[in-house]
Write a protein that binds this DNA or RNA. Structure first.
Lengths: 157, 157
DNA sequence: TGCGGAGGAGCATAAAATGCGCGTAGGTTG
DNA sequence: CAACCTACGCGCATTTTATGCTCCTCCGCA
């Protein structure tokens, strides 16, 4: 889907404030409300906007810890992978999981409240997942960057 | 701030859909609209809800590729780290970056359009960052999970 | 037992979103 | 080059949603 400069402005604004009322959005990007609403509709339907979410304060909720986990399985058969992936999807603490090229099969990012909480997650979830042969946990000492999306460039087709 | 089960339900719902109308939210959590609105107000004012954001689809924007990069620096002096981190913050393709315990100093998640694009990023950004001694790139073959949010447990104070 | 605060309901009003008719610019075709 | 088509804008009327009361109820406490 081709995005023009107004689309970019809309996306930009909604990344910063997902609840920006359509009226305000329209004014900000220089459109009438109806035109703006129609564009927004298209952006949502076409999947450019994948969703809207409240961002919660992790300190308020006590999830202070990020753990990066590298995992190897006993094989690369599709069945082996999908068994594992089903289990991954069930664990609420897993923020992201990718099947990877390279030394490990999967890399996971996990949120935990503290070390004992991670211990629990490790025991109850990670170790219990099927076909897992190796688990390597690295703890984040500091977060330098965390964005959901990179800057949008106008030349995207 | 103490959260009861209704607050949790509200947070849960808004994490999943940040634009859920108050009326629907109220029904979902079993409150009247006004009561629900008042609670929401408190959650926002107290900072438990830190913001609302549109989540954009990286693939829809043409960034199909996720690369996990492990990086080691020449030392762990604070100056060394902060030089590097300043550079990291400048690169728009870096979605996340954490200082880590373990074998590598930093783990980065990078969005690229395709392999040539990643090559460019590697050359122009990663290799150019100060004090870098080792760069290890792993390519994501498939994304199994990617959320910003995790389930909230009622026992959080 | 009576007071006071927290928190819920219901309703009226204010604000926002949505759908529809209409107008215009730019590209295409006979 | 004129007729036509489409994409996309505007404004307005209608519907949907949020907000700001007022009142009610439950509970802890003196």
């Amino acid at each position: 889907m081709p995005l023009d400069r107004i689309d970019i402005a809309i996306l930009d604004a909604l990344q910063k404030d997902g609840r920006l009322p359509n009226a305000a959005l329209a004014e900000k990007v220089g459109l009438s409300q109806s035109a703006c609403s129609r564009r927004l509709d298209n952006l949502e339907k076409s999947g450019v906007i994948a969703g809207y979410h409240a961002r919660l304060s992790n300190t308020a909720l006590g999830h202070q810890m990020t753990v990066i986990v590298h995992i190897s399985l006993s094989g690369q058969f599709e069945k082996t992978l999908s068994d594992f992936e089903v289990a991954v999807k069930r664990c609420p603490n897993i923020l992201s999981c990718h099947l990877m090229s390279g030394e490990y099969d999967y890399i996971l990012r996990i949120a935990a409240r503290d070390l004992p909480d991670y211990e629990r997650i490790h025991k109850e979830w990670l170790s219990a997942m099927p076909h897992v042969t190796k688990i390597n946990s690295s703890f984040a000492l500091r977060e330098i960057v965390d964005r959901t999306v990179m800057g949008i460039r106008p030349d995207l087709a």
